[in-house]
Amino acid sequence: MTRRKRIDTLRLLVKGNGLIAGSTKSQTIEGELRRLDAVQRRRNADGWLLSVLHTTRVLDTTLAVLIKAKGWPTTKFSLGSYLVELDKRSVLTSREQSSYQRRIVKKRNKYMHEAGAMPHGLESDRILTDMQECLEQVLRRIG
């Protein structure tokens, strides 16, 4: 699937979910998807880094909206803690949570917190693919 089609799929997933669509954050998430789409045209290290940033911000905010809408308490507001909460609620299996932690969160943290760390194009695409998979799983199971 092309990046463009993947982003379009993410738009449909977000717009099609009542919990997200009814949220005050729905426009913010849509804006982040527009930014992600725009940076895809930059086929260089800066563009790939921005792609990781926007990809993970979409997932982070979307999971926060879903968890809040379900009324599930969280003491930490981070992508990793949202995945743990989804595991606790049996939305994700422990294996899935651990896998997404490794494939998305750990990589995102490396690129966002380590000076000089830059993803290459394939890694940026892989993180987007993994994010879409995670979001699809969560939305399918959370309702």
Rank of each mutant, 00 (worst) to 15 (best):
M1W: 09
T2Y: 07
R3T: 14
R3I: 14
R4Q: 09
K5T: 15
R6Y: 01
I7F: 00
D8C: 01
L10K: 07
R11K: 06
L12G: 11
L13R: 13
L13M: 14
L13Q: 13
G18H: 06
L19I: 00
I20G: 04
I20T: 05
I20R: 06
S23M: 12
K25S: 09
Q27M: 07
T28K: 14
G31P: 01
G31S: 13
E32F: 04
R34E: 13
L36T: 09
A38S: 10
V39Q: 00
V39R: 04
R42A: 08
R43M: 06
R43L: 08
N44C: 03
N44T: 04
N44V: 07
A45M: 06
D46S: 11
D46N: 11
G47Q: 09
W48P: 03
L49I: 01
L50W: 13
L50S: 10
S51F: 00
T56N: 05
R57G: 01
V58R: 10
L59D: 01
L59S: 02
D60Q: 13
A64C: 04
V65N: 12
L66S: 02
I67W: 05
K68Y: 07
K70L: 10
K70V: 00
G71M: 13
G71F: 08
G71Y: 11
T75W: 06
L79D: 07
S81L: 01
E85K: 14
E85P: 00
V91F: 03
L92P: 05
T93Y: 03
R95G: 09
E96R: 04
Q97W: 04
S98L: 08
S98R: 14
Y100W: 14
Q101Y: 09
R102W: 10
R102Y: 12
R102V: 07
R103Y: 10
N109W: 02
Y111A: 02
M112T: 11
E114S: 10
M118D: 08
G121E: 15
L122S: 13
L122T: 15
S124A: 15
I127V: 15
I127H: 02
T129K: 10
D130Y: 11
Q132N: 06
C134L: 15
L135M: 06
V138T: 06
L139K: 12
I142Q: 06
I142A: 08
